[in-house]
């Protein structure tokens, strides 16, 4: 009962969205499936970005450079995959690039105790500059993008089968990462330490936790997840690299993180909502609604974000030590 009333807004929202989807899809199975599948697809990079943000911010470091991490990783992943022809190698390169950028962010903000917002902005601008400078048009993936894997008989279920059990590998990985990170954050020693460092670093230090080490580890790990998000964009969603292809997703991921109250499960729910706002656009176009004024469809996800952040989230409370460089004194 307690749980039920605590999450009642989530249930109300979900119920409304399901009804709205059925309505816009004219109660047809194919269209409903398409909207739901697109929702999941659109939400995947946002969840990954938000998970990166959660890991960083739970340990007390703001990461505004998620956008840059995803862009850099999308580029690294694509270049490696297109020159070796090996997608797995590409994904690995994407993750490695994200981790490297995470380590760099940690070096700037933890070791040098620089301003975290500036450090993140450096990542963003550097990623835009470097990827545009070194990008050559005309490259492609010899093996195509990652292929769909059907999970046996589950994939044959109506609607759900197509939406959840017939996806590409990085999407499955993302779906797996959400509960794993949730468990790690709230049920393991590492998670407790992370949260302790984020809330009260000097207290954590007095009981023998190395604040610097925890922050480094979380930023690198988070970078790897953002890197996975980048690799998802270039190797799984699009199948090529384009200049500025992240298109603000890293920033939307920050909104997703805050909306999800720094909780992986919450962030997943939030990402699905934003993914849905994007997916439903296609449905609007399909139905020919607002066909003459597509701009109003284009701005919907952003208005949804504003309304949600202003209306639902209100004064969400971030980890207490966030944004402050830590020094042992």
């Amino acid at each position: 009962m307690n749980t039920l009333s605590r999450y009642r807004w989530w249930f109300v929202t979900a119920a409304f969205l399901v009804a709205f989807t059925l309505f816009t899809a004219e109660f047809q199975q194919a269209q409903t499936t398409a909207v739901l599948a697109a929702t999941l697809r659109q939400s995947t990079p946002l969840v990954l970005g938000a998970l990166c943000g959660i890991l960083c911010e739970r340990s007390g470091v703001i990461n505004i450079g998620i956008e840059g991490q995803m862009l850099g990783s999308a580029f690294a992943g694509f270049v490696v995959a297109s020159s070796t022809g090996d997608l797995l190698l590409g994904v690995t390169a994407g993750i490695a690039c994200g981790m490297l950028m995470g380590a760099f962010l940690a070096f700037l903000s933890v070791s040098l105790r620089g301003d975290q917002i500036i450090a993140g902005t450096v990542l963003n601008i550097a990623a835009i500059g470097l990827t545009s400078f070194f990008f050559q048009t005309g490259r492609s993936l010899p093996s195509g993008k990652t292929s769909r894997i059907k999970l046996g008989p589950l994939a044959d279920l109506p609607i759900l089968g197509r939406v959840f059990f017939s996806n590409r590998p990085l999407t499955y990985l993302t779906l797996l990462l959400v509960p794993v990170i949730w468990y790690a954050l709230f049920r393991t020693t590492w998670g407790l330490r992370t949260r302790a460092v984020g809330e009260h670093p000097s207290a954590a230090e007095t009981v023998g936790i190395s604040v610097v080490r925890v922050r480094y580890m979380n930023l690198i790990l988070g970078g790897g997840i953002a890197g996975l998000g980048g690799a998802y964009l270039s190797l799984e969603a699009v199948g090529s690299f384009e200049r500025m292809m992240t298109n603000g997703k890293g920033f939307v991921a920050l909104a997703v993180m805050i909306f999800g109250r720094w909780n992986p499960i919450g962030a997943w729910g939030a990402a699905l909502l934003f993914g849905y706002a994007n997916a439903v656009q296609t449905q609007f176009q399909f139905r020919g609604w607002l066909a003459d004024d597509p701009q109003f469809i284009g701005m919907m996800p952003f208005i949804v974000t504003i309304v949600v952040v202003a209306g639902f989230v209100g004064r969400a409370r971030p980890p207490a030590s966030i944004g402050q460089p830590y020094s042992r004194e």
Binding site: I64, G248, F251, V252, L254, A255, I258, Q295, F296, G298, M299, F302, I303, T305, I306, V309, A310, G311, V313, G314, R315, A316
Partner: peptide, 21 residues
């Protein structure tokens, strides 16, 4: 409403681009 300006200003950028378009 306590909505963080980093998020709202970025979102308002996209909305503004659509409106001006």
């Amino acid at each position: 409403r306590g909505a963080h300006e980093v998020i709202t200003t970025i979102m308002l950028n996209f909305v503004a681009l659509n409106i001006t378009d």
